[in-house]
Amino acid sequence: MKGRDDLRLLLVLLAVLAVVPAVASNLVINFLVTALIVALAAQGWNILGGIGGQISFGHAAFFGTGAYVTELLQLRLGWNAWATAPIGILAGALVGWAIGAMVFRARLRGSYFALVTLAFAEVMRILANALDFTGGASGLLLKLQPGAEAFQFTSRAVFAWIAIALVALVLLGTRHITRSRFGAQLVAVRENEDAARALGVDIVATKLRAITLSAAITAAAGVFYAQYFLYIDSQIGYGTWISVEALLASIIGGVGTVAGPVIGALALHGLGELTKGLAGQITGIDLVTFGLLLVAAIAFAPSGIVGAWRRYRGSRHRA
């Protein structure tokens, strides 16, 4: 199976990445951690949007919930950060399940599904921005208390290693899903719902499992973001940027593939920095590239970087 080669390659890549924090400057590590947070969020998106074919425009709803819940429990109830992290992930999963239960029962799919997820994320953004409980427009700032027991590290390298470990873990989990019965059912739902139903697949239950899992992973990215930057506001947590980047990284990397979101996120952020380096610090110039890249990817490389790599490998094998 070619999938196995891709995975082995990616694990090697992650191992190489793991060396980087030990030798690189803080600037490089910062870039790496940010890209890996997006990679994690995209891995979550890919379960539902890639393998399951339900394209979401609103994964910010899960990212923001993870980030807000973990910060709120620490700030309002004084919990330890390590205890709040799993609760944040669970809360994200719960939001995913609740949205899925409403939306999938109403049989919304395709463009309707994309728009309704966007609307849910926007509702949460407006609420988080308006309520005093969530810090309103000024957001939430975690207290700086360096130390491993508070999930805060003076060395950024440690954060980078945790991020790499998380991404690797989800990578293995995703590979397991694609080979499981659940993964096969999910692909069947993506390819043809009526045919899948005729074969006895419970459409709503399968989609619900996918969105819950997907939301949990993206919420984990939000939890990690909150611990790394110690700050969250409605625009960061529930803004469209993370929904778009999670979607973009998966599509650029290779939608529905195990390795795609990670490769896509690294490529995307590398390209973003490159554009900024070439064009100077013009606001929005990196996002112009992202937008054009999305159009180009759909037009010329619908299976992303992973697909192009496989085609290249395939042509070499035949030669």
Partner: peptide, 30 residues
Amino acid sequence: LIGPASHGDDGNILLITLGLSIAIENALLA
């Protein structure tokens, strides 16, 4: 642009118009 690039798939059109909107909005911002 939109027609040829989408290969006749509705989901692709949504993504292409999303890409266009990101690119144009940020070009205006720049």
